[in-house]
Design a protein around this nucleic acid. Sequence first.
DNA 1: GGTGTTGATGTGAGCGCTAACAATGTGGGC
DNA 2: GCCCACATTGTTAGCGCTCACATCAACACC
Lengths: 333, 333
Amino acid sequence: MRGPAMTDVARLAGVSHQTVSRVLNGHPNVREQTRLRVQAAITELGYRPNRAARALVTGRSQVIGVVAQNTTLYGPASLLAALEQTAAEEGFAVTVASVRDLDRVSISAAVERHLAHRVAGIVVIAPVESAGEALEHLPKDVPLVTVDGDPRRPVPLVTVDQVSGAREATRHLLDAGHRTVWHVSGPADWFDSAGRIEGWREALAAAGAEVPPPIPGDWSAASGYRCGQMLARMPEVTAIFTANDHLALGVLRALHEYGRRVPDDISLVGFDDVPEAAYFIPPLTTVRPDFDAVARASLDLLLAQIESDTVGELRQTIAPTLVPRRSVAAPRD
Amino acid sequence: MRGPAMTDVARLAGVSHQTVSRVLNGHPNVREQTRLRVQAAITELGYRPNRAARALVTGRSQVIGVVAQNTTLYGPASLLAALEQTAAEEGFAVTVASVRDLDRVSISAAVERHLAHRVAGIVVIAPVESAGEALEHLPKDVPLVTVDGDPRRPVPLVTVDQVSGAREATRHLLDAGHRTVWHVSGPADWFDSAGRIEGWREALAAAGAEVPPPIPGDWSAASGYRCGQMLARMPEVTAIFTANDHLALGVLRALHEYGRRVPDDISLVGFDDVPEAAYFIPPLTTVRPDFDAVARASLDLLLAQIESDTVGELRQTIAPTLVPRRSVAAPRD
DNA sequence: GGTGTTGATGTGAGCGCTAACAATGTGGGC
DNA sequence: GCCCACATTGTTAGCGCTCACATCAACACC
């Protein structure tokens, strides 16, 4: 019933199981001829090494655990996919523990689940404050990387440079001639939101522009719509930067309903570059984070820890790029 | 360095390791007092069972492998998230092997990766022809469920009822008074596309309506836009059913550019109910598949196989529901 | 009082692998 | 020809757990 084991391969190839193990792990001191014999036996039997056994003896599996919330959103989903691709290239599998809420208890539980499986390392996509706290009380010996986590915590961290992205978006609008830029933000407890607000403020300050109060949204088109209804009735608003593209979509629809045209009356910039942003009406100028680069960086940081068996304190920041489309124009006056 | 093992707990509780194992697995014949002593020892040591060891001896891990392509799309991402949630409730972890292409080799490789980890079962989100072929040559002893796979293959299968969804969408448009309905389809090799085309055809036939040629798209807003440019210039087109919401978004923009208003000039229905569909201009009438139900059904089918150690041939179909919004109206003439 | 029967616990083997070390063979230098 | 270095292979001992079985007490039954 069970498939062939290493000893079966060894018997067929006329060597010891240890030699089979050496071939499998690419150990150098194996005669070429032996290697071939073993490999032939492997294919003949359709042998597949049992990773559970290996994990048992080495105390570590070739699996990386990812903790994430709401993997339905475009950002997390892209990141997850990129992470999986990159990990696969390095011979690692990825298991996901998605959590409904990002509170301390949920995160800890998710991490626990991963630890029970003796994952080689953990990537936490932890964009909110409370998640950072949950990570404080973690066993210190398991390699860990946080993505978009708290920049102030002493944990290996990879982030999209929210600040620079938001700064560019805002400057792009100011450069078009707008006196100031309004901002529809993400939820208050997300670091992403905070960073984007900060970049927006910086750009306004640098230009000596007035800083209007940020309008708080929650990433969804629905909340964008509500914020948009408010902004649409304020004639002084000529430029809006939303914290993501779905917010922008909601704003777009509200503006449309109030008869304010984009970009003629109001210019708009989003964040994320979801694939359909180019097909909004009008096509949305936005900021594109490089998820592949984030995944690559996270995995590098993680693998470095796994291999050196040390817990590093490195951090990497990936700069996003502005994608200009047709939702930005000069103000009319 | 390594955490405490079962023997450590046993020693502390003054019992044998086997008794600890019994407590852990909820075996009935353990005295209440003993159970409590063991549990106390477990918490005191912070003991965590080693699943690799268990997997080694039982020959099966508490992990479910998912093979999926393009988990960035809303549909697969939702399904994956739902699957993970449901699996977690049942005490299973989920590992993902996403594949770039759905050809036979890629699928087989992904399945292989999962088998090496001795997953308890595999869920293949395999919406295309070639994927089905890859599954033919699989070891027969591993529980398997396909989602949105080939309805003609003798493999446990869970599908969204594409046909009924498309039929409803089409009928909804016909009921509004349209003489016929045009269709922008998904890629030709996806079963989802085929099912949606079939449902659309059926509804037209049932109403005695003319069946125009389906316009082939590829799920993306970009291709929807191209198809829309074509349809926008055909004055006889008054109703369009697109195979998903992103196609609809592209169509929407093309129609907008050609000055054809939705729903005044042309009515439009999508498929998927992505969260932002309600914020398109106008809000999109669409068809909502129940991903949670699909995940639930898939897992049930899989667990049934895992527990009974038999490979079933059951199949389940989940009916989607129409979500009426403002993109449909009666034709003007 | 002997004999089951049942519940609660312990014992020993072994899952398939790697790590450490032991044991070969092979060739070079003198 | 002898000794040593080095490449190649084998041997042994677990990793932490579950399974099958053995054990042992307590109690019921005739």
